[in-house]
């Protein structure tokens, strides 16, 4: 499996971060960065990283299933993550999520057939004082109102 030169450089640098013989430490960052490029944690990606780090595919699989940001299936071009945890819930996070479901026509962890949007109801994303908050891919949007949500999603069409 081949990656972009930029990602390869990032991997090469990552592998220098750990004590000798402990480069397995790079597994989670490698998965995260590679997922961004590949689109998902595919079986090929898992096998490739297992081989590079000298561990079994099962050991990679154990890790992948544990972390909620690692996805085996590709997500939409815009992955809309709406927090409904307490701080956001108090200020309408759950309603925003319902609104997104209706507007995007998909539910939790579902992707539009067009591949443009996917939706996820997420746990606290660390924006509680500026709730309700959402993330689209890695971008935060704070103090989201129903109108603002429409505007954000509109802007991504």
């Amino acid at each position: 499996m081949t990656f972009s030169p930029g990602l390869e450089a990032r991997f090469a640098d990552l592998l220098t971060h750990y004590p000798e013989g402990r480069h397995r430490g790079a597994l989670i960052p490698m998965l995260m960065y590679a997922q961004d490029e590949v689109g998902a944690v595919t079986p090929d990606l898992m096998a490739e990283l297992a081989a590079r780090l000298g561990i079994s595919v099962l050991q990679v699989d154990e890790v992948v299933g544990y972390y909620s940001m690692l996805h085996k299936k590709p997500q939409g071009k815009y992955h809309v993550q709406i927090c409904t945890n307490v701080a956001c819930m108090l200020l309408g996070g759950a309603e925003l999520y319902e609104q997104a479901c209706t507007r995007l026509g998909v539910g939790h962890k579902q992707t539009q057939a067009s591949g443009r949007f996917s939706l996820e109801e997420v746990e606290c994303i660390g924006a509680c004082s500026w709730a309700p908050a959402i993330q689209v891919n890695y971008d935060f949007h704070h103090d989201v109102t129903p109108a603002k949500l429409d505007e954000i999603l509109e802007g991504l069409q």
Binding site: L58, G65, Y67
Partner: peptide, 14 residues
């Protein structure tokens, strides 16, 4: 090994 998390954790083969 053990895959998934929490209540969905289960034993998985190689």
């Amino acid at each position: 090994g053990v895959v998934n998390r929490g209540i969905n954790s289960e034993i998985a083969p190689s």
